[in-house]
Design a protein around this nucleic acid. Structure first.
Lengths: 186, 186
DNA sequence: CATTAGTTTCAGTAATTACTGAAACAACCG
DNA sequence: CGGTTGTTTCAGTAATTACTGAAACTAATG
């Protein structure tokens, strides 16, 4: 890893580590971190040089990041190389991440749970297991719905919502007054 | 893996896979899934038998789960063995998971970012990088605060909040009316 | 305090996952 | 076309991570 300011290098290394706690491989995390802080789109060769990885490794990493829709590629005029960059706004990044993880992990799990719960349990043990799965299924559906709703909000609304934070309890106090909210069943 | 009903087996296998997408190793995921659906606490030997793992592997897995505070151990009267179980309520499980991940991943990242941002950037490139890190830092702080606030809610309030879901936009419409909310600066 | 029942640790090994370089492929250009 | 520049694929290898069995440890029991 060369020609990188120490603070940038630390950031990149940290994200590599974080990645590996999140089921994303280290170099993919590093590539993303580099693109994230870079002030201009980078081509694969520049990434290779900056991080000291093999060209093919970078290529695979970029492909993976594209499959997550976390990087965009573009061509600069007069240059045949592909240049990669991350979205300007961190919120967009977070939302994309949320959506992809939902698609890849939550949804398949829900599918499995729902399928299983269609069938009658054959024993007492299985009956209990199904009850537990039902609880999990309910929670996951709610989380999934929440996430879906977040996707739909405008960025302004999202920013607003994020600022709420410690106002949540106060918000809940008002539930009584918002009769409108309890009316429809989900 | 023996003596397990097919639907339970599928559940356990699925969670093993999920685990590996989440930086948790497969067998740890399986152990957790087994305990989660079990109708009574299990000792290490029972887990070993049910999943076909080595005794020591189970021991390490349980230790890991305990470090995440995701399983509890207890002694049954007249038996020296340790018996393991998961919390009754899925919400509690989810909250614990959220809190631990915050502690282990979000907080250290925030620490690094804040440290870095204390220093003056030395170049234009670094200046841009710092701006990006600042954005990420801000978002992470908000998310961290949100999570912290969630921890504090009662279970009833949490269940209520989860049901909101698609009511979020309607909630935001009211922001104007809730002058109380915008008063304090964060 | 020796025996038994249970748990944990750890060095060695197996399995998985990540990385590489060479070759194939693709697109552009004169 | 044939050459040039750039990208992707993939089989082999390296590195990492997970798993095991044997031994060490711990605590209760007669």
């Amino acid at each position: 890893m060369k020609n990188l300011e120490p603070s940038i290098q630390a950031f990149i290394l940290h994200f590599g580590e974080m990645g590996s706690h999140w089921g994303i491989n280290r170099t993919v995390g590093q590539i993303y971190a580099l693109l994230y802080v870079s002030d201009a789109p980078l081509n694969a060769e520049q990434i290779t040089d900056a991080l000291g990885l093999s060209r093919s490794n970078v290529s695979m990493g970029l492909k993976e990041l594209q499959s997550w829709r976390l990087v965009q590629s573009q061509h600069l005029p007069g240059d045949r190389k592909d240049y990669f960059s991350t979205p300007e706004n961190v919120l967009d990044i977070a939302l994309t991440l949320l959506e992809e993880r939902r698609k890849r992990e939550l949804d398949p799990t829900l599918t499995l749970l729902r399928q299983t719960l269609m069938e009658k349990p054959g024993s007492e043990k299985e009956k209990h297991a199904h009850e537990r799965m039902q609880q999990m299924c309910d929670l996951m559906e709610q989380v999934s719905d929440w996430a879906e709703d977040l996707q739909r909000l405008s960025r302004t609304d999202l920013e607003l919502l994020l600022k709420f934070g410690n106002k949540i309890p106060r918000l809940l106090e008002m539930k009584g007054k918002l009769s409108i909210m309890g009316k429809k069943k989900r």
